[in-house]
Computed example of a mutant assay.
Amino acid sequence: MSRPDPKAATRVGVVGTGVIGGGWAAHFLAKGYDVVAYDPGQGAEDRLRRLIDGAWPALEELGLAPGAAKTRLTFADSLEEACTDVAFIQESGPERLDLKQRLLKDIDAAADPETVIASSTSGYGMTEMQRDCARAERTVVGHPFNPPYLVPLVEVVGGERTAADAVDWACDFYDHAGKSVIRMDAELPGFIANRLQEAIWREALHMVAAGEATVDQIDRSITEGPGLRWALMGPCLTFHLAGGEGGMAHMLDHFGPSLKSPWTRLIAPELTQELRDRMVEGCETQAGERSIADLVAERDRKLIAIMKAREAAS
């Protein structure tokens, strides 16, 4: 059996339907795929359908693929059903290594022999997750960003036993499915974007813990500052411009010595009860009377506006 053309795939499986898995299901449905989803959790189907209902207005505004419909979702009664007769499987189970290993082993046993299996893991390497898979050569990481139905980035990388053609197939499939694909050169703990996010996150926690800045100040320092530039150019090209006509070379030559200044506290602070409470209180203050559902709707609406503006400016 040979793999289908990734551009000809019409039916995908989604295993694990929490925030990330449910977001993947919404994305695939909006792109016109038939989706077979499975999650053993109590009430999982109702939660998934509510998530898709909540995401659908944003997806309609972005533009649905021809034939896209929420009715093309099937919630399977078993893992085997979700893994049979599908061209691709996206696993989004809980972030526990032992569970990932067991789940990928079970998916591998249930899926058609040539079906590519991708994990949404945000931290584990495929080498450690594919340990017990009989056909590990078709397992890859497809690391998305929340919400997967709007944020286009997906980082793709295989493990030591993954075949290069499986990574090629996954990249082509994701690209055809409307994602912006980074094919990573090697396994990297935390991947690329998470490593960058975590650096900022650790600094934010240190500043709150030391009473140097509030949650609101930290968030606005990004949304009203670098975040605006990062939506258009990444940190490297942004600093390239900071060097003026001399570009990155001048920037590094001029500011290079400051790289060793004691600005950063990249080691994570101790998560004390006091720090936890201050973070929670700060977020609740920022949210005000807006519920999580309200914030999700606001985030989606504003993300769409940014994506449309960026597309118009390109």
Rank of each mutant, 00 (worst) to 15 (best):
R310E: 01
A313C: 07
L150E: 04
S291G: 04
A170I: 03
A309Y: 00
I117Y: 00
G123W: 02
Q273A: 14
T115D: 03
D53L: 12
A313P: 06
A9T: 00
L252Y: 04
K70T: 12
W263P: 08
S78D: 07
E60N: 03
S119N: 04
Q273P: 12
P257C: 11
E245T: 02
V141P: 00
P262W: 01
G190R: 03
E270Q: 15
M251V: 06
H27W: 15
A204Y: 04
D5T: 13
A309W: 00
S120Y: 00
G234C: 05
D46M: 08
K302V: 11
G282F: 04
E114D: 14
L51T: 06
M279T: 08
R310G: 03
Q42E: 09
H176S: 15
L51H: 10
H27Q: 15
A44Y: 14
H254T: 15
K260Y: 14
W24Q: 15
Q286F: 13
A25C: 06
G123C: 00
R49W: 02
V19K: 14
G256R: 00
G22D: 10
L79K: 07
A65T: 06
Y149T: 03
D53F: 09
G93R: 01
L79F: 08
S122G: 03
L97G: 01
P6C: 07
A30H: 13
A231E: 01
R310Y: 04
K105A: 07
R195L: 07
V86R: 02
C283H: 10
